[in-house]
Nucleic acid binder design. Structure first.
Length: 599
RNA sequence: GCCAGCUUAGCUCAGUCGGUAGAGCGACGCACUCGUAAUGCGUAGGUCAAGGGUUCGACUCCCUUAGCUGGCUCCA
């Protein structure tokens, strides 16, 4: 990614620099904490990290790095770098390796794995520090620019990412060939903070989070609610055209429903605890599907009714781990662009492709050109635990999706052990302008729940048959998608999405009546407009409207009042005076109706 | 959930060595009536996240809790 030439990152000089920087960091840490146990220290995007186990302190608590350690370690690293120590490679036997790392339990675990797999075991040594490593590295430590790396943060990290294993201390660093690139990277991080949806969400009055409401439960302000409504309108138009019908379902249901759906056995950890009333236990719904299944099953269905596409912007609640909550990206209550398509097995492929077409339409509309589709599959080990126990079906459905993706020419990657409990799925990952990943859309095949709900239809032969179900959510949830859009557009929403499309700014009090009349006229045509009264000077009003990133400002004074025109200032700063009101309205309507990505 | 850090006015942030708080913006009021990114003056606004402890005295030190932020296998 950060590589200018075409060679893969793993073979680049930068990869070597970062890898060696990680070793230098480890050497520095051993100088500060001689008893530290080393885990792993790989290069990563933009830098490197190294994981350490610092042992226990005098009170028997796990010792941790202190923020003050970082400057000390950086200084020590520069000393090591200045020594221009060569990186010396050698291959050793497993026995030698065990001897060499006899007091390094994490290394011993790695050595065991390596010796089992038969891979060669090697080390790199610089100065007095020798580390188990396959490389590659730079020739000597002097090849790391002392002013082009920086230690960034301290974090806890489980050994091998497994929460049942020890919590290690991780230090993240960033490293670059030259000082300029480091500065550019730090600058980019600062820019990203400006564009963060949490910051813009507050500044543009889109949503807030309130401690007393609860973590991960956003409140949508009037501006944010307009974004939701516009997205729902869009979805509604697309789905009407694609033959969906709309339903509405409650937010809670009795235990029995989730026992039947399988959510309670498979998904309980992610559900809010039950509420008891008159001997019955109710749960907040973590998914909309069981409700839609009930609607499908509410009357006898014929093959003529299929595919039946039930759609709902449904609100679901999931108890996400507190540490994973983040702005609108990971929340505990969200409203999903949900639908369930019930169809015969023979219709599955066609329906799956139709949903993919919907995705492509949305991506084009929002200018999302970088995305990855993941085919998330079951794992053999998870059958009967995380996944319904029917391996034949899993393999069959995974292959069906694979074939559709191939025939539709949609690039995708495959991931084991990431499916829903009721079937395999396609997940779509997109990246906002600041590089944050958003897993938004999902498209799942369900062969388990229709059986659990005894769903049937009568086929052409008059025989009862079980339908399949496709769960799909191309626009994900409002929370995630709007979080994405805020960063994607940096708050400069296209006009059709802009909560306030036009702000009318009178130059003096004498022009207020004209401004009010204009605003009423604009509103009558469906344009979201507001007059800005108040005693600030016009300049201040313009500034405020710019800060709110409003697409159009209409400035009206004597001139405009006299000839019934407006002076148009676009968000970009472009101005045009003496514009006829009708012409302006026509322009805005055109841009809005076409959902133009530009002004 | 786990690790670390943070939490001072609506927002962004100062606050020295422990002696009970400040600024800018915003809000409100008054004056100004102005041509494309900040008019001036004034007023109000704080249980320093919450609870407990140490101390003559705590925003400041210690403990607990809550919330937020960065992380939690881009494999030696």
């Amino acid at each position: 990614m950060s590589d200018q030439n075409q060679q893969p990152y793993e073979l680049s000089d930068l990869y070597r620099i970062r890898h060696t920087a990680a070793h230098v960091l480890a050497q520095a840490v051993l100088a500060l904490y001689p008893a530290a146990k080393l885990a792993i220290g790989p290069p990563i995007d933009n830098g490197f990290y190294y994981d350490f186990d610092l042992g226990l302190d005098d009170d028997g608590r796990r010792r941790t790095f202190k923020p003050d350690d970082l400057p000390w370690l950086e200084k020590r690293m520069r000393q090591i770098i200045a020594g221009k120590h060569p990186l010396v490679y050698r291959e050793i036997s497993a026995a030698e390796a065990r001897q060499l790392f006899h007091d390094q339990p994490y290394k011993l675990e790695l050595i065991d794995e390596l010796s089992h797999s038969g891979e060669p075991i090697s080390t790199y040594r610089q100065d007095s520090f020798e580390d188990l490593c396959r490389g590659p590295h730079v020739a000597h430590t002097g090849q790391i620019a002392p002013d082009a790396f920086q230690l960034m943060s301290i974090a806890g990290a489980y050994w091998r990412g497994d929460e049942n294993r020890p919590m290690l201390q991780r230090i993240y660093g960033t490293a670059w060939p030259h000082k300029q690139e480091l500065k550019a990277h730090l600058h980019m991080l600062a820019e990203a903070r400006q564009r963060d949806h949490r910051k813009l969400g507050r500044e543009l009055e889109i949503f807030i989070l309130d401690d007393e409401i609860g973590p991960g439960l956003p409140l949508w302000l009037p501006n944010g609610n307009i974004l939701r409504e516009e997205l729902e309108r869009l979805a509604r138009e697309m789905e009407d055209a694609a033959g969906y019908v709309y339903v509405s379902t409650p937010h809670i249901a009795k235990e029995a429903l989730y026992l039947r759906s399988g959510h309670l056995p498979y998904y309980e950890d992610e559900m809010y605890a039950g509420m008891e009333r008159e001997g019955a236990t109710y749960y907040l719904k973590p998914m909309n599907c069981p409700f839609h299944h009930k609607i499908f099953g509410s009357k006898p269905r014929s093959y003529r009714d299929l595919p039946l596409r039930l759609s709902e912007y449904g609100t679901v609640y999931r108890y996400e781990q507190s540490g994973t909550l983040m702005g609108l990206l990971r929340v505990r209550g969200q409203t999903q662009n949900d639908a369930h398509i019930y169809c015969a097995e023979s219709q599955l492929a066609a329906e799956f492709s139709a949903v993919l077409a919907l995705y492509r339409h949305y991506f084009a509309l929002f200018g999302i050109d970088k995305y990855v589709m993941r085919l998330s599959k079951h794992s053999k080990a998870g059958l009967g635990k995380k996944y319904v126990d029917d391996e034949t079906m899993w393999l069959k459905m995974e292959d069906l999706i694979r074939q559709v993706m191939i025939s539709e020419n949609v690039p995708f990657v495959e991931a084991d052990d990431e499916a829903a409990f009721y079937g395999p799925k396609i997940d779509v990952q997109i990246w906002s302008a600041i590089g944050r990943e958003f897993s938004i859309a999902t498209n799942q095949v369900d062969f388990a729940q229709p059986a659990r709900f005894d769903l049937t239809f009568t086929n052409e032969q008059g025989v009862s048959e079980m339908p399949f179900c496709i769960h799909r959510a191309p626009l994900g949830s409002h929370e995630r998608f709007i979080g994405f859009l805020i960063e994607h557009y940096a708050g400069n929403f296209p006009v059709w999405l802009s909560p306030e499309q036009v702000r009318v700014i009178p130059i003096t009090d004498a022009h207020q009546a004209y401004a009010a009349e204009l605003t009423a006229q604009l509103r009558a045509t469906g344009i979201r407009a507001q007059a800005m009264v108040g005693s600030e000077r016009m300049n201040a009003k313009v500034r405020q409207a710019q800060q709110m990133k409003l697409p159009y400002m209409l400035i009206v004074g004597d001139q405009e009042m006299a000839d019934g025109t407006v002076s148009v200032r676009e968000r970009s700063g472009i101005q045009q005076q003496g514009v006829a009101v009708a012409a302006f309205v026509q322009h805005v309507k055109g841009v809005v109706d076409g959902r133009s990505p530009h002004l």
